[in-house]
Structures are given as structure tokens and as C-alpha cells.
Design a protein around this nucleic acid. Structure first.
Lengths: 187, 187
DNA sequence: CATAGCATACAGACCTGTCTGTTTATGACT
DNA sequence: AGTCATAAACAGACAGGTCTGTATGCTATG
């Protein structure tokens, strides 16, 4: 049997993803995880704390999975392409229910809310990673601007996949990115 | 005094926008609107029905405002630019709390949920409108593909503005669009 | 024996939707 | 113009359910 804390985080990730944060209660999470309520409250002092820790874990596994996927490629062009095809695979997973951070922002968007701030942080971390990828080709200033634009493409693709059900959106976004990025300087 | 039904819809729009759908209760809506609970339940049989009607009204006013704004322009280039600058103004409104339809999809994303279906419908309606704009320049097939890509740009900009707080995202998206669209055929 | 986890009940708050009875506005007829 | 019937909105209590978080004992395993 797994560590109860990780089991709770994993169950919470799945249920919050499927049902939303406010709609899914503590009782359902502990029932699905097969864990007593007191065990959960020993590991996480509140539901909000559970959500925050779950987002932390998700941020970590998201970035790790993405970077590993991209690191398999060597050329700049292939790396950028991998950035989009990783998203394509994500959207076409049967358990895709949108981005946990975007969805969290939808439910908790008071500026001082920790969950909201954590979601924003995740997106900024991703932008920063993309920016680093781009510095292989671009100057600092331009990489910064392009990173934000690519993040716009990726988030737009997430929404198109989730809300509209357009499961090819990541490839559409990649089309746009190719038109946006100048690959001529490629090494 | 206004029509109570419209007053309720307007109050619901504001409160759901600020606080989210599940977090805002009926009691708070009727209190803010200064309307009795039975009056609300006479106009809308349930909270879900209120949300649906509110989304209908928002869809209508959204499209009307956008199309009026765009119709002020005559050239294709200026119309496309207006599409993005309308969004820019929206994001920089002090009452901007993200897209009501994206946020609704985040809270209700069971495939058979009416609210989810309504949200998807709104996005599709917008895509269709953009597609019509594009047919001025492009062939049917290409306009269809481009419309989806531009919708990806707009939704990405919404997320960047709402989640990351990047209030210039609409203009960044417009930059991308200009690189995507061929204006040489402009009349 | 001690620690971790179990089951379950409970308090208190809140939520949706219903019920009742009162007040106000409207509008038609004399 | 004045009167009265009808409809709409009002206030507020209430039922039944759900939610979070706490408290209490019991069990099993090392």
C-alpha cells in the first residue's frame, strides 16, 4: 500500500480534475482513497491546504514530464515541436479535464487567494521555461516576448480542447507557432 | 425600477463573475438585487436555470457589443484589429474576472451538463462569426481553419489576462494574428 | 506498548428550494 | 375619478440536505 499522503494527493487530483474544486467534498475524496477523515486532516490542516499541496505536486509532475519529453530532442525546432505535441498527447488522454490551474483560477479568483496565486505562479514558471528554450536562438528581450506569446498559444489550445472539444488544437497552435518563430537561425 | 427578471440576471452576472458559480449562493444574489426569494424562483425554476439564462443573456450582449464594435470598421485589416482591441478593452475593464463561459466550463464539465454545453456553444458561435469575417478574404476551407486558430489566440489571451494578469495579452495575440493572416489580398 | 489508521458521530454553518401570509402595484369597470 | 379584483413582489421562517472540521473510541501492526 502506498503512502497515505500521496494516495490522498493522487485521489484529490483525479476528483478535483473531474468534478471541480467546490463541487467535490472532503468526504468523497477520503471515501475514494479509502482513508479515514482524521488521517486526511492529520496530513492536511484544511481542504484549501490539500488543494494547494495538490497543485504543488501537479506543478512538479507537470514540469518534470514536459521537460523530460522535450529533452529527448536535440534541435531547437524539434524541441519546440515537442512542446506542442506533449500538449497534444495530454489533450487526447481520456482523463483530460482541462488545466487544473486554469480551473482553479476560475473558482478562486480573488487576488489575495493562495490558490489563485499558486495557479498564476505555475503559468509563470512555464513561461520562464519556454523563455529559456528560446534563448538558444533569440536575444533576451525577444525571447521574453515570444515566451509569453507561445504561452498564449498553449493556453488557447487548452481552452479549445476543453471547452470546445477541439482535440487537435495543440497542432493548430503548433501551426501558428511555426509561423511565429523564425527557424532560419537554427543551429 | 427595472424589470425584476433583468435585475436578477444582471446581479447574477456580476456576482458569479466575481465569486464563481458554486461559491455564490442564491441568498446573496437576491440580497444584492433586493428581490424576494420567491420572486426569483418564479422567474427561474432553479439556480442552474438562472445560470443558463444568465449565460444566454451574456452571449447575446457579448456578441452584440463585439459585432457593433467591429462593424464600425470598413477594411478587413481594421476589422480584424478591432476584434483584438475589443478584447483588449475588455481585459482592462476593472470588472474583468475572466470569461464567464470558460469559468463555467471549469466548474461544470460533465459532458451532459447543460451549462457546459451552453459554454461550448458560445465559443462555437464566436468561431462562426470570425469565420464569416474571414470569408471576405479567404476560401471557405481556409477560413474555417483560420477561425479556429484565431479563437485559440483570443482564448489564450483571456487566460493570460485572467490567470497571469498580463493585461496586454490581447495586443500580443494581435501581433501573432498579424503574422498568421495574409493581408496582401486586402481590398 | 505505541503509532498510525480506522469508523462514526457530531457541531455548526450554509445551501437550495418550499411554504405562508402580507403588502403593493396594476388595470378594468362603473 | 373612484373602487375593487387580480397579480406580483415582499419578508421571513422552515425543511432537508451537504459541507467542513472536530471529537471519540477502536483496531491492527510493528
Amino acid at each position: 500500500m502506498k503512502n497515505k499522503r500521496d494516495l490522498l494527493l493522487q485521489t484529490a487530483t483525479q476528483l478535483f480534475s473531474q468534478g471541480g474544486y467546490n463541487a467535490v467534498g472532503i468526504d468523497r475524496i477520503i471515501a475514494e482513497a479509502g482513508v479515514a477523515k482524521m488521517t486526511m486532516y492529520k496530513h492536511f490542516p484544511s481542504k484549501n491546504a490539500l488543494i494547494l499541496e495538490m497543485l504543488n505536486a501537479r506543478d512538479e509532475s507537470f514540469m518534470q514530464s514536459l521537460t523530460q519529453y522535450i529533452d529527448q530532442q536535440s534541435s531547437f525546432f524539434e524541441k519546440m515541436k515537442a512542446l506542442f505535441s506533449w500538449h497534444h498527447e495530454w489533450f487526447n488522454d481520456k482523463d483530460f479535464h482541462g488545466c487544473l490551474f486554469i480551473n482553479a483560477s476560475a473558482e478562486f479568483h480573488q487576488p489575495d487567494n493562495d490558490i489563485y496565486k499558486r495557479s498564476s505562479q505555475h503559468k509563470q514558471r512555464l513561461i520562464h521555461y519556454i523563455e529559456n528554450l528560446l534563448t538558444e536562438i533569440y536575444a533576451h528581450q525577444q525571447a521574453k516576448k515570444l515566451a509569453i506569446q507561445i504561452e498564449i498559444l498553449l493556453d488557447g489550445a487548452i481552452i479549445a480542447a476543453h471547452v470546445i472539444g477541439h482535440l487537435n488544437s495543440a497542432m493548430e497552435a503548433w501551426d501558428i507557432a511555426q509561423c511565429l518563430i523564425d527557424f532560419k537561425q537554427e543551429n
